[in-house]
Design a protein around this nucleic acid. Structure first.
Lengths: 340, 340
DNA sequence: CGATTTTTGGCAAACGTTTGCTATAAGACA
DNA sequence: TGTCTTATAGCAAACGTTTGCCAAAAATCG
């Protein structure tokens, strides 16, 4: 920086002000300084800067290991959307894995408490906590995405899972379906609770009993999405009274389920209607093309970043701590009225 | 840190040595210091540390925007594998997007030259370069993954694309196939060149003419994998002499191609054998289950990190600058001898 | 117990910025 | 020409560590 100052014939403090602050320096000298910097190939040292101003420009995204595969269809989109928004705001994106081990938790906490990051977007229901340090009281702005953690006081950007599933179930009922097969995610998982709840609400609204839905799966996490579908197909085969409609809680499990069911000789949608969740592009090319509830991932990513940057900017937005982005039902050939 | 020192009853320099260096301090006092740190909830400031020692502990991964979707099946695995290896080595992973605009290039260069990152793993054939600054001469250790950039002097971790495609083509020839349909990636793309080359080599080895393969696609990048398959299906429909075997260069395009082809009334593998590339799990559940060449993503990620850390550690490894990880052909029902 | 080795204390400089302060210089204006 | 405004210079402290140095203390050993 001193070299740049010398070359531009200005003081070092002026260089600093020219490069960092917007208004403090005359446009002409700023141009001179930029030219000198370019000529010398000078790039300000980000770490020194961050140290001095006491804040980092890195945002970390906390992904539970199990998310990688299970929702593998949407993770790349999430990352791309978030990163794009962040860069526009001058921030960088760091990846933090949250597995079930203490090491990864400690690692995340080190990042948070070590001043490395400025904020976090979390896609896990579990906040890292070990040795008395907890992400919750790290002082970092945090926003949760996909999962509703407003109970824990976190801003949350979510979809209307429950409502969407309720609506699609209602639609199936309208088509004449009376017996359902629900492909569950991990027991207790937020999404699973919401989605199953949506099914039950629709049943109740139609005056149907809870017995109308058979719940399958729930022993594996989303990481094993395909396995869930395979096991569920076995489960289905063993049922005396066959359901006529299937509600799956991820595309992965729907795809493997359908594959196995068709191999067993059943036809979709003639024998069985299927609707799934996530909206991955591959659904369009399944056979038959799968109806699915599309998660508006990009929009959620943008919203999450916006909330986070607001929180960082201290522009307190005491408004709703829960941002709901509407998901979108995509109807394809996998749904039809039941054979009578 | 001063507080910790006071509480532990030691000097501040001792605390520093205890927390950072491995051997320099007695095990007993180290324990005392750790206890004090925990009690106070103290975490060393990473930025100050990095500034002082003049090196960051952040590795950036450079993903071209187009990779996100096209190879969406494998990106999450790449990230997970790399991140896992990095964390074990005490490093963090930062995401850098490389799009076709100058902004993203500048951003990456700022990271590289601003001392923010310690090394880079790049999955793009294009090295960011603007205003005379180039990633190539940033002094950063870089390793390329998926793409062979050893010509540009970069360590490269790649698969044996060409060989794998050659082998599978030879297998198709052995089964009796004589006319092929090749689903291309972007024209000039490294992978496409390699894979197409593999096809041609196999043809030549069998004494077949280049005319035996019809090349389709190549106008879109991998980002539009599904679209490629759709267009190729139209292309296929217009052919007078139908090929009997299809070689696709990504799972996405294979899946959409198969979907459209079957809709047109053709049966796989009776009318048409199909083999694709990537090895995404969904292939097993396509109808019919797709043969595919599996990219050993995790292994490549590990290898890339290992090379990078070696380079950082200055342990010059002047050995082969190209690391080839063998891909794996997974045979499923989508392949059969042609109907005669 | 003396000699030797190991460990720690204390000090201070350094990493590359930002930023508040005062003082000076340069323009603008009347 | 004098006054007011704006822009810059120059200085120095600060951010929170690490690390080399030397001396002091403690532990180990014969």
């Amino acid at each position: 920086m001193a070299d740049v100052a010398r070359l531009a014939g200005v003081a070092i403090s002026t260089v600093s002000r020219a490069l960092a602050n917007p208004g403090r320096v005359n446009e002409k000298t700023r141009a001179k300084i930029n030219a000198a910097a370019k000529q010398l190939g000078y790039t300000p040292n980000a770490m020194a800067r961050n140290l001095r101003v006491g804040k980092s420009n890195i945002i970390m995204i906390i992904l539970p290991g199990s998310l990688y595969y299970g929702v593998s269809q949407i993770i790349p989109q999430v990352l791309q959307s978030i990163n794009k928004s962040l860069i526009q705001g001058g921030y960088n994106l760091m990846i933090a894995n949250l597995d079930r081990d203490e090491i990864s938790e400690r690692h995340i906490l080190d990042l948070a408490f070590g001043g490395s990051v400025r904020g976090a977007i979390i896609l896990s229901s579990k906040l890292p906590e070990v040795d008395g340090r907890s992400l919750a009281n790290s002082g970092l702005p945090i926003v949760s995405m996909l999962l509703d953690m407003s109970d824990a006081g976190l801003q949350s950007v979510i979809t209307n899972d429950r409502e969407a599933v309720r609506d699609v179930t209602a639609e199936l009922i309208r088509l004449g379906h009376r017996r359902f097969f629900y492909l569950a995610g991990p027991e207790g998982n937020y999404h699973d609770v919401e989605r199953y709840g949506g099914v039950l609400e629709a049943l109740e609204a139609a005056g149907l009993s809870k017995q109308a839905v058979h719940r399958s799966g729930g022993r594996l996490d989303y990481q094993h999405g395909f396995d869930i579908g395979v096991q569920a197909a076995d489960d289905f085969a063993g049922l005396a009274e066959k359901p006529t409609a299937v509600i799956a809680t991820s595309d992965d499990m729907a795809i493997s389920f359908v594959s196995r069911i068709r191999r067993a000789g059943l036809s979709i949608p003639d024998d069985l209607s299927v609707v799934s969740f996530d909206g991955s592009p591959v659904c369009e090319f399944s056979s038959p093309p799968l109806s699915t509830i599309e998660q508006p991932v990009e929009e959620m990513g943008r919203a999450a970043v916006e909330l986070l940057l607001d929180a960082i900017g201290q522009r307190q937005n005491p408004a709703s701590v829960r941002t709901v982005v509407r998901s979108k039902l995509i109807l394809r050939e996998s749904i039809a009225p039941p054979k009578t």
